[in-house]
Design a protein around this nucleic acid. Structure first.
Length: 394
RNA sequence: GGGGAGAUACUCAAGCGGCCAACGAGGCUUGACUGUAAAUCAAGUGCGGAAUGCUUCGGAGGUUCGAAUCCUCCUCUCCCCA
């Protein structure tokens, strides 16, 4: 294998590699010693839904696996058990052991849609973190200074804005770095927001007498709002575990501006220049849906989407709702069908013209409805329910 | 340890005794329009079969005919000094 060529492949889509010389060196070394490089990737177990933003680094990992290297998929369960990691100032309820294990299983199911199971090792950092003594922690903390900690962007920003930073938050980058030491990572892959943490890991490894890991930084994908990074807490994410139609639909809803980003980062190809944004978006949505659910599902989702939103017809599957009464107040019906969370909201939807019964708009909030089995209730553009008379749901 | 500032709905942020279910912005929902769950524009955004109704402005008490607004204590945060 030509090392330059290997480097070329690894370089695709990256923002930065620290450093290419070191990487080249490692590739050569690994080859001559006939060993695989250990590629670390850290995941936060408190949000177990893998979304398209994660798939950018995951695809890079897959590539590295194809080049013969081994991925160490680290689940930061220890850090999550303590609570709030960096970022938002809200204290998140710490996860229990069971939550962590459940989330880890969820991860496992999802990541192997992309990664090669045979070349992946799943590890939890509680394994070595839990047994650390206070003296170990103090020693670890002595490797770094407050001033250097405050170099980190989000720390300095919060500090300047006079927002609280707890002492334990300073420990997270240290623990992350220590993970690299324990795992003897050769390479670490992550988004550009991890730059600081990764650099710290390199320093720690040096202090512990190891070769520092090579850092591969990848771009951060914007969410469906087209502005902020894709994340679960911002609600602008597309999970790879969501239904095909949902993935397809959410992709259709991204702003035109970021189409090229999605093409480059998710499909690895440039956005077609000569087709209309609509056509380009359709292709993007279909191809990405196909990656996770197969071509058949991609095609079906496209059809379904156009059926519902362009031709405004009914979807294939509509959830059934059993209603006891024969005659019912419309407001109550919406609440019963779980299409509105309160009667007040139901009333609002009706008045605003967002409620259709058998394709007829109902604007009278006082209306009493005589129910028939199979009636179709529609709220907004994409929430449907089919009425079933009497009995239990099912 | 001393002194000062602050905590308001999903988020940011006004209000500082009645006109406050609480300005405004973002988000979200709905509608119009559209190639789209895009952009733009408009409306809505605590609960209640609706009543001068009920529950809300960090928590607990108190003053008052009346409190998000005043007082006391508590919890948490930020700043300055040591």
């Amino acid at each position: 294998m030509d090392f330059e060529k290997e480097l070329e492949i690894i370089r695709e889509n990256t923002v930065d590699i620290i450093s290419e010389e070191e990487l080249l060196q490692k590739l050569k070394e690994a080859h001559s010693q006939k060993r695989e490089l250990r590629v670390k990737y850290g995941a936060d177990p408190s949000a177990p839904d893998i979304h398209l933003g994660h798939t950018v680094p995951l695809q890079k990992l897959r590539q590295l696996q194809e080049l013969g290297h081994k991925v160490i998929f680290l689940i930061g369960d220890f850090t999550a058990c303590i609570g709030d990691p960096s970022g938002v100032s809200k204290t998140r309820p710490p996860l229990t052991k069971e939550d962590v294990l459940k989330n880890a299983a969820t991860y496992e199911r999802q990541i192997f849609k992309i990664l090669d199971k045979k070349k992946t090792e799943l590890v939890l950092n509680s394994k070595w973190c839990e047994g650390m003594r206070l003296s170990d922690v103090v020693k670890l903390a002595s490797h770094y200074t407050v001033a250097r900690m405050l170099e980190r962007d989000d720390f300095s920003m919060r500090f300047n804005k006079k927002e609280p930073i707890s002492i334990h938050e300073f420990l997270y980058p240290l623990i992350q770095g220590y993970d690299s030491v324990i795992l003897k990572a050769d390479i670490e892959v992550g988004g550009t927001d991890q730059r600081f943490n990764f650099l710290l890991a390199r320093e720690l490894q040096r202090d512990f007498g190891q070769d520092p890991e090579v850092v591969i930084l990848l771009p951060i994908l914007e969410g469906t709002d087209g502005k902020q990074k894709m994340s679960k807490s911002l609600g602008n994410y597309i999970g790879i575990d969501e239904t095909p139609l949902e993935i397809y639909g959410k992709l259709m809803s991204i702003p035109d501006k970021i189409l090229h980003r999605y093409y480059n980062l998710l499909l690895g190809i440039p956005c077609p220049e000569n087709s209309s944004p609509h056509e380009a978006k359709k292709r993007l949505a279909k191809e990405i849906t196909s990656i996770y659910y197969g071509e058949e599902a991609g095609r079906k989702s496209e059809e379904e989407f156009h059926k519902i939103f362009v031709r405004k017809e009914l979807p294939d599957k509509i959830p059934e709702v059993a209603i006891e009464k024969k005659e019912i107040w419309l407001v109550e019906l919406l609440v019963e069908a779980k299409l509105a969370s309160s009667r007040r909201e139901a009333r609002r939807l009706i008045v605003q013209g967002g409620v259709k019964l058998d394709n007829k708009v109902c604007t009278d909030p006082e209306a009493e409805i005589e129910l028939r089995g199979g009636m179709i209730l529609k709220v907004g553009k994409r929430r449907f329910a089919k009425i079933k008379l009497g009995g239990n749901n099912g």
